[in-house]
Amino acid sequence: MAWRMPAETAPHERTWMAFPREGITLGESAAEREEGYAAWTAVAHAVAEFEPVAMVVDPSERERAARMLGTGIQQVEAPVDEFWMRDHGPTFVVDDERPGVLGAVDWVFNGWGAPEWSEWRKSAEHARLIAELVGAELVSSLLVNEGGGIHVDGEGTVLVTETVQLDPRRNPYADRARVEAELARTIGATTAIWLPRGLTRDYDEFGTNGHVDIVATISSPGRLLLHAQPDPGHPDHEVMRGIRAEIETQTDASGRRLEIVDLPAPSTLRDDEGFVDWSYVNHLVVNGGVIACGFGDERADAAAREILEAAYPGRRAVTVDARPLFARGGGIHCITQQQPAVAR
């Protein structure tokens, strides 16, 4: 077997999501909960304009999900606690030596390092559930990892972060070599580009400790979209300067220096909790489109759409308000997981 994770730009069979359920992530007040339900639903409907969407729904949310999602989105009933499908769900792979075979990597998920607040044991079962539903071969891994902690170019390059895969709360005995060997076995990554850290807000109590999918993504082999914070009053201005400098020293699986395209952050610097980590990097590429994060900054949102459409030729960028998602710890990419299309 030679498993390989395709680039997000490869054709999709569908996108997987998980519907929110009541708990600390969704919010304490009725208004907060309704905002969360609406945000997940808006993303699902935006994706469904381009490709099928399958939603895992907790039995307690069956009626609400049916009402809000409608008949155009497949609903799969199963226990849910956390609902960040990118992180707890499967990472899909293909086997180039066996055309038509789909694999599903089941990473160990421990709620981003097993913090006291996280509820994750039910959703940690979703990778196996979904693999069985779609007829994918299960690729079991002992690496504690999340889908938001990796980005690939589909040709052997993977982006990772020292504070995620080498986090002692996740993998206390890991080093770079062990992580890279496991990524080679499970997703076919032959070259790892290590980022030193993630964005400032991501190290708060409810953060992921540095997920790459709000920092950088490879839009096509040899080209990288990088979060940019132009305002020196935001700590990520210096953070991104250091990350950019590190990326500029590294090469991809083909030996190329990466062309870096900046994706400037919106103008808002803070919310009620502190400096924001709002990032247009956290978009989802779909069949014929890009589902882009919006932040209520019309000029910046429009500029991001232009950059994304240029980075993904032939795709139409659509903006969905991602502020309710980021307030809960992630963005559009974080709540979705693409299933690549394979010949059946």
Rank of each mutant, 00 (worst) to 15 (best):
A7R: 09
E8M: 06
T15S: 07
F19E: 04
L26K: 01
A30H: 12
A30V: 10
A38P: 02
V53I: 05
E61Y: 07
M68N: 06
G70C: 10
I73P: 08
A78M: 03
V80L: 07
D81G: 09
D87Q: 05
D96N: 12
G103P: 08
R121M: 12
R121L: 14
H126G: 05
I130S: 04
A131D: 05
G135H: 05
E137S: 12
E137I: 14
S140D: 13
T157P: 02
T163S: 11
V164W: 08
Q165V: 02
P168A: 03
P172L: 00
A174D: 14
D175Y: 03
D175V: 04
A177W: 07
A177Y: 01
V179S: 01
A184R: 15
A192N: 00
A192V: 03
R201V: 00
D204S: 13
D204K: 07
H227P: 02
A228N: 09
P230V: 14
G233Y: 00
H237P: 11
G242Q: 10
T249K: 13
Q250S: 02
S254Q: 14
R256C: 04
E259I: 01
D262W: 06
L269E: 05
E273T: 12
V290R: 12
A322F: 01
F326A: 15
F326E: 13
R328W: 03
T336L: 05
P340S: 09
